[in-house]
């Protein structure tokens, strides 16, 4: 029984260890150096900051339309 507990705990610890390893890699790789630029990597000249990319629903027409329907 206790061998199995060790196995389970070992697996949990190992999983945490991969997270720690990843964290070290990221830090040494300079992933945390320029946070401002990091947040912007999903934008570029084609789809710059400030450009919404999913406008499917139309803005609701102002009431005027309805008024016009009544002669």
């Amino acid at each position: 029984m206790s061998a199995i507990y060790l196995l389970i705990l070992g697996s949990m610890v190992l999983l945490g260890a991969t997270a720690v390893l990843g964290l070290f890699w990221a830090a040494r790789n300079g992933q945390f150096r320029d946070m401002k630029r990091g947040a912007r990597v999903i934008f570029d000249e084609e789809e710059p900051v400030g450009m919404p990319t999913d406008v499917v629903f139309k803005k609701r027409e102002p009431r005027r339309r309805k008024a016009a329907a009544h002669p």
Binding site: M12, L15, G16, A19, V20, G22, L23, F32, M35, K36, G38, A39, R40, I42, F43, E47, P48, V49, G50, M51, P52, T53, D54
Partner: peptide
């Protein structure tokens, strides 16, 4: 991406990921 504005705090997003990675299991 949809609203066209970077994540408010990229620092918080990093903190969120690494704390999830360490605590969840």
């Amino acid at each position: 991406k949809v609203i066209g504005r970077p994540v408010h705090s990229y620092y918080l997003s990093a903190l969120g990921f690494w704390s999830l990675a360490l605590f969840y299991s």
